[in-house]
Amino acid sequence: MSESSNEPGRAGRLPLVVGARGGGICVAAILAAVGALFAWQASLLDLGHVGLPGPGFFPLVLAIVVTALAIIIGVEHWRAPAGGEKVALFHRDVLIVMAASLAVPLVFSALGALLALGLFAVAILVIVGRVPLLLAIVAAAAFVATCWIMFEVLLGLQLPVGPF
């Protein structure tokens, strides 16, 4: 957890600071829940038997192990002294890049790849890179045009064109 001791830089205006203990328990709980979900789904498949396992056997065993290990990790964190290390999560820039990245596949087909990626670039350059809007638009347009030449014209890759 080396990151936990890092001083937030310029990007760190809005970090969510959580205790390593509480955060660790939460992450372990999520992992245990994922393991339990897989175990439940695997139990619906044909398990076969120990000698000749079916398609559900291997994932069921693995899911149970993941759940068990996650519970052990959670207990370890729970036993750790309270008020110890802190972990800074989701700095402003991180949140913005995450949100913008998750928006890309949403609009990738609808707007077309080049427009979607261009908007992504402008948003990141302006909000995270603090580049003036006009310069960001020019830079994004130039980069997207380069991508178009390189991937579509030269390499013949078919990217979604959207409504245009």
Partner: peptide, 17 residues
């Protein structure tokens, strides 16, 4: 921060391709 959109966009196109 300027490299981020470049890397992400190239990665997206690469993964999509």
């Amino acid at each position: 921060n300027w490299l981020v959109p470049i890397i992400v966009i190239i990665s997206i196109i690469g993964v999509y391709s």
